[in-house]
């Protein structure tokens, strides 16, 4: 199954596939009885998930009014669940902007402050200390991050090591997007690969398909003490995810689409991170691409990352 660049055309100008349609069709295919039986356990967790939530349309099909209603509903649900007033936004990509990120491996010391900032910014589960960033400690002279360790605890940096933070590479040819059976994950026009948490069915194909191990699965809904919840939330980014869906780095789109730096960049005490608009020839990220010898991870796979690494000469 492939993802069309022009879905409207491919489906003949219709409304797209609402989940209701899927369910109806499935009912017809599987037989109404089997379908009903399979759905029956739903009644036991109806409290947990409202009908609205279950019938939530795909993000890309929401009309402006529906989008507004969705944001309001989730804000209200969050208030009910956590007592916290959050502001949920759904900033669209900006015309003429394609995001790129570069990381200076000569500078990074492996302090994990980026991973920590991600943890806090993105309302990650506190118990598992989840983060979209893993920092690999690797022997100098190798760049096979699979051979690195991520659980080091000794003071950093060590002389014989270098440190490589890895997060979603926001590939131009994202294997994770290709394998999603329901189009719950896709690449936006500014290059950010997003997940529609309401549409994801949790099959984890994308997790397996990602060569960078950048996707995380919510075995539990993230648990964050109310006082630590970041109330500045995005529909496709750091809002508190439901249980059983995939998530991943979204370049802090609730910040970056407002012109701000991602949280991991601001938190970096060493200044190893460079973020900006690849389409702006005067941007810092373009300067890095044009003046440093940058490389991408696992180039041979043809994934075309928007995330670059470099060493100073």
């Amino acid at each position: 199954m492939s993802i069309s660049d022009d879905p409207v055309q491919q489906q003949g100008g219709g409304d797209g596939v609402a989940r209701r349609t899927v369910l109806k069709a499935a009912g017809a295919t599987l037989g109404a009885a089997a379908f009903a039986k399979a759905l029956a356990p739903l009644t036991t967790w109806a409290e947990d998930m409202s009908a609205d939530e279950f019938l939530q349309k795909h993000y890309k099909e929401l009309s402006p009014a529906e989008l507004k209603a969705t944001l309001a509903r989730i804000e209200a649900d969050t208030k009910k669940d956590t007592g916290v007033d959050v502001t949920l936004t759904a900033d669209a990509p900006i015309e003429g902007v394609k995001f790129g990120y570069a990381l200076n491996l000569s500078i990074c010391i492996g302090c994990r402050m980026c991973a920590e900032a991600c943890h806090e910014e993105n309302n990650h589960d506190r118990k598992t200390h989840n983060s979209y960033i893993r920092v690999f400690e690797m022997d100098k002279g190798s760049i096979d991050f699979a051979k690195g360790t991520v659980d080091y605890v000794h003071p950093v940096p060590r002389d014989d090591k270098f440190y490589m933070p890895v997060q979603c590479q926001h590939c131009d040819e994202p294997p994770c997007v290709d394998v999603c059976p329901v189009e719950a994950t896709w690449k936006e026009k500014d290059g950010i690969v997003v997940v529609d948490y309401d549409w994801c069915i949790g099959c984890r194909y994308c997790e397996a398909a990602c060569p960078y191990h950048a996707r995380r699965f919510n075995w539990h809904a993230p648990e964050v003490p109310a006082k630590d919840i970041n109330p500045d939330q995005g529909l496709l980014s750091n809002r508190i995810r439901p249980q059983g869906v995939m998530e991943k780095c979204h370049f802090c789109l609730h910040r970056t689409r407002k012109g701000k730096m991602p949280a991991c960049l601001e938190a970096c005490p060493t200044g190893a991170r460079v973020f900006g608009n690849l389409l702006d020839p005067k941007s810092e990220i373009r300067w890095v691409l044009e003046n440093k010898r940058v490389f991408v991870l696992k180039e041979e796979l043809g994934t075309k990352p928007s995330f670059f690494y470099f060493f100073d000469e």
Partner: peptide, 28 residues
């Protein structure tokens, strides 16, 4: 629920042979 949705989606694709969503909100 996931398995159901998943199977349902596959079934739909197999039978209707169509997929795809809209374009999403307009760009800034």
């Amino acid at each position: 629920r996931r398995v159901v949705l998943w199977t349902a989606a596959l079934a739909l694709v197999a039978t209707a042979g169509c997929n795809g969503a809209g374009d999403g909100p307009p760009m800034q």
